[in-house]
Design a protein around this nucleic acid. Structure first.
Lengths: 160, 160
DNA sequence: GCTTTACCTCAAGTTTACTTGAGGTCCTAG
DNA sequence: CTAGGACCTCAAGTAAACTTGAGGTAAAGC
């Protein structure tokens, strides 16, 4: 820790500091910025500086990623926050509720899929007409009227 | 259906026929072949010909994909079958049991993740030290001794 | 026999989430 | 003042699962 410049608790952060503190690679921070997920300003020497809030924002991003939310969606969600402001507790609740719904949905789908598979294991027909595993459109008609998020898809593979 | 050559019920299939019957694009069939998932022989004129069993094999592949199994794994699984033989009912049982275990595992993981998220929504701390959502290593210690497939991973995002 | 289709190969493009590398600048310590 | 570390940009590479396109052959219909 000798080469690390002493850190003033209230100054803006350099990209290296953010990287160390967040565990996200510098290249990834560049990338996030390019994708509009995070923001910075520049010093005279053209180096990035970050507000300390960045760390919380990155924490949110990382959690969302663990949840399997694509970066583009995360970016979209973060954009709904008034003018790139600090992520507040309420913001977090909103976002996380949304993402949990998404997660629930995925879990449901996987579970239905597993059930179909279980049915099908004994049968093994894989018949084009009869096999539900082969006819994904079923999944469309079979669920009630729960919270339906944007999801006009039917067959595309349930990603991992 | 006028341009479609009359189909002899017992002759080998051309790539176009396989495509129509399986719903898989010709380019995808080429691709699968290249990846060793399916096989064909050639006519004098260098065109691919397929055994009728190919349709069942492709059905298996498609189902596996719906289950979220990567092609490389599917290829690996299919290779365990004696010398590229027709997929029998028993083969299907073996494969599907394996894949269901994989699916179960993923569902478990997602469910645990959702529970953590639920806990965390009210809290909103996202603390580096305290927050379980931010400390994926927890997931490592917390599960008993169920069927552990190859899985040395901890934090990487649970893909969709 | 000629014209469509169908098929062939091989290279390159697509998306996601980044990393790696090249070539150059800035800043801090000694 | 100079060495070294931190930083900058931009291009290209990576993996997965294919698709698209170019340029060329084969086979089928009339």
């Amino acid at each position: 820790m000798s080469t690390i410049k002493s850190i003033n608790r209230h100054q803006p952060l350099s990209v290296g500091e953010v990287s160390r503190r967040s565990g996200v690679a510098v290249s990834a921070l560049h990338f996030y910025e390019q994708k509009g997920l995070i923001h910075s300003w520049r010093t005279n020497g053209n180096q990035r500086r970050y507000h300390r809030d960045i760390l919380r924002r990155i924490a949110v991003i990382k959690v969302a990623q663990r949840l399997g939310i694509p970066l583009s969606d995360i970016a979209g969600a973060l954009e709904t926050l008034p003018e790139g402001r600090t992520v507040t507790a309420e913001d977090w609740q909103q976002l996380s509720n949304r993402w949990r719904a998404d997660l629930d949905d995925r879990i449901d789908k996987l579970t239905r899929l597993r059930d179909q598979l279980t049915d099908c294991i004994g049968c093994g027909c894989l018949s084009v007409e009869a096999c539900r595993l082969r006819n994904p459109s079923d999944t469309l008609g079979e669920n009630g009227s729960g919270p339906r998020l944007l999801d006009p898809d039917e067959s595309p593979p349930v990603k991992r």
